[in-house]
Design a protein around this nucleic acid. Sequence first.
DNA 1: ATCCAGGCTCCTG
DNA 2: CAGGAGCATGGA
Length: 309
Amino acid sequence: MEIFLPAREPFRFDLALKYLKRSHDEVLDVVHGDRYRRAMQGPDGPVLVEATAAEAGVTARVLAGTLPEETLACQIQRQFQLDYDRTQLPADDPFAGPLVEQFQGLPVVQTATPFEAMVWAILGQQINIAFAYKLKRRFVENYGEQVDHDGHTYYLFPTPDRIVMIDTDDLREIQFSRQKTRYIVGISQAIIDGELDFEEAEQLDDEDALALLQKQIGIGRWTAEYVLMRGLGRRDVIPAGDMGLRSAVGVFQGLPGNASEQAVRDLAESWRPYRGDIAFRCWFGFQHGMYKRGKQAAVVEQPADPGSY
DNA sequence: ATCCAGGCTCCTG
DNA sequence: CAGGAGCATGGA
């Protein structure tokens, strides 16, 4: 089975893949050349799906297992925001403009599920990204179901049911801190108990959804905002407390250090209602060597060749 | 060794 | 209610 999914222009699948290639330790969103592959849960068990660029869109197919065509379409469409309008981003803004222009067509690449976004955000709290990826890799390889195809192993993200069964000492063993362990097991249990429901959050406006998520221990403002932005497709939510954003804004404003969270929020006011799109592009730019100190603030170079990281 | 990294909780004043 | 200490863990 193979289906064509049209994308609203501008859209660049290759840029999305570039974002996904940011770590060698990424084991969920696998990129082989120009192919995106991902294992996920289907109605009849694990499946492996693939997506590649096509003329004015994306082609999606199932490589292993079975999945209803509509489910496949929805998933890929959601992960790559194929139907989002990217023509109204703030092109004239001094900070956002270069990001809008240089990364035209880049969607806010979504995680396969909101749950995955939340766990990933917790893993990323207060540690460097490279190490966060290592933690995720060990976590996924140890506790995720696997799908073998073409001599390669693909992983599903661990489920809440599986996570609450894990001996917490085993998580310490793979270098999870006590807090991360507690937070991740906690939200897994909350999902099982129906206390935390992403479909419920889906129905709420940004403010209320953020408040709902923040009721969980370990989910502060940054994490909640991250989940809305990367897992629930909300375009106007920005994790302004983020170190990367604060650093980028600090460079932009010519400060000796990072900008404050408030300064990021203030600057982002003019990006409404696409603050999330700009924040994501800022991360992408950061990933590609923008925002180096010493450069004239508003001048942003053409992104350096990626793939090295 | 020292400081920092895609924060959070909890306790002060 | 804002601000900060304390936390927890590895990497540069």
